[in-house]
Write a protein that binds this DNA or RNA. Structure first.
Lengths: 204, 204
DNA sequence: CCGTGTCAGTCTACGCTGTAGAGCAGTCTA
DNA sequence: TAGACTGCTCTACAGCGTAGACTGACACGG
């Protein structure tokens, strides 16, 4: 089988995504996917060359579910829409989302997303030569924030420290004790971060 | 064996890190680590409860190798030192580095790094209430940038597009063609990004 | 009507993984 | 000298991704 079949690819990806959402990335095995769609494991290899390519397909699927640009919107509205949609994606699929960081994809879907951001930056008046860098800066932050949230990097960290006896060694923590509860309102934090980033863009 | 032995832990982590650096994260198996230090695989379980905890130990090891603050430096020097050291870490250990995103750690080492950044932000005049958020913003970006680099998310993406016939569908790419070579000088880009971020901090 | 080709899916098996559980030689202490 | 403890080994198992051979259903040309 040189060429791959495509008809049931979406069905397979649906099953894979559901498994990862329900039981975590570790539970995403070829056998589990196969069982879910009612075939034997080897049947999947007619649609994806191996598990890695199935995972690639999965990130492609995530990317397509990002919104297209609506023509009437201003550049900062479009940028915001991308950012919030990305973050929602991470919350909906915390198991799979971190793969976006690991598997750079150059599928048309991925390029379309980048193009959307390029256009927003151009409309914002960013000089052409700076646009690709600023795009990388923004997507890196947005992806990083969403991934951190999905992986619990934010929620777990602050809590322990105040109870820890060793906090004498950490003077800045000591001083900031009042502000150290793990951030209850990540929505507000994300919004504030985006506002700060937009301030980078505006006057460039 | 309830309590874990500690004496050979560093030796084991050294071996694990070397394997990951030389042959990638996939090659980092208990058997490979064991063989490298000349024991059987099960001997490792006297030092780490399981592979996951060994990986946790590995990220702890990365964190300790970050530089401590030098007293004489200004806040932006300290911030820059952290950022560049983090990025160097990712370049030196591209296989392991992404684990920093996946495994939030609250070891004293991790807290020490955060404390260093807190202190720099305080010295920069950031209001106490904003310090934790800005710290998360900065580390998220720095970690994200370094991870992207380690995973090749930056280098692979730009190249194909100009040769792709479909670029008509991507007007912004079309317009930016001249600036779309995959960024040759990531050093300069990282420096520019840091400068932009510092501009967020300064007037807050 | 009969071969024959194509194709989707199955079956079996292999090497590799993490790790549980039992055992074993050497050293320290009573 | 007996016994406990310690650091390690040995064996074994279930589960993983996947190669290779196979099967049964359908379509089609003679």
């Amino acid at each position: 089988m040189r060429k791959l079949k495509t008809e049931r690819q979406p069905e397979i990806l649906d099953a894979a995504l559901a498994i990862a959402d329900e039981h975590g990335l570790d539970a995403l095995t070829m056998r589990a996917v196969a069982e879910r769609i009612g075939v034997t494991p080897m049947a999947i290899y007619g649609y994806f060359r191996n598990k890695n390519e199935l995972l690639d397909g999965l990130v492609g699927r995530l990317l397509t579910s990002l919104p297209q640009a609506l023509p009437g919107e201003s550049w900062d509205q479009r940028l915001g829409a991308f950012a919030w949609a990305t973050r929602r994606l991470a919350r909906d699929h915390p198991g799979v989302f971190p793969l976006l960081f690991a598997r750079p994809s150059v599928t048309p879907d991925a390029v379309a997303v980048v193009d959307l951001i390029y256009q927003a930056l151009i409309d914002a008046g960013v000089p052409d030569a700076d646009v690709p860098r600023i795009e990388r800066l923004i997507t890196t932050f947005v992806l990083g924030f969403a991934t951190s949230e999905a992986n619990g990097r934010f929620s777990a960290s602050g809590d322990g420290i105040r109870s820890r006896r060793a906090r004498g060694d950490f003077p800045a923590h000591q001083r900031l004790l009042a502000h150290l509860d793990s951030p209850a309102d990540l929505d507000a934090e994300f919004a504030a971060d985006l506002a700060d980033l937009v301030r980078i863009i505006r006057p460039v």
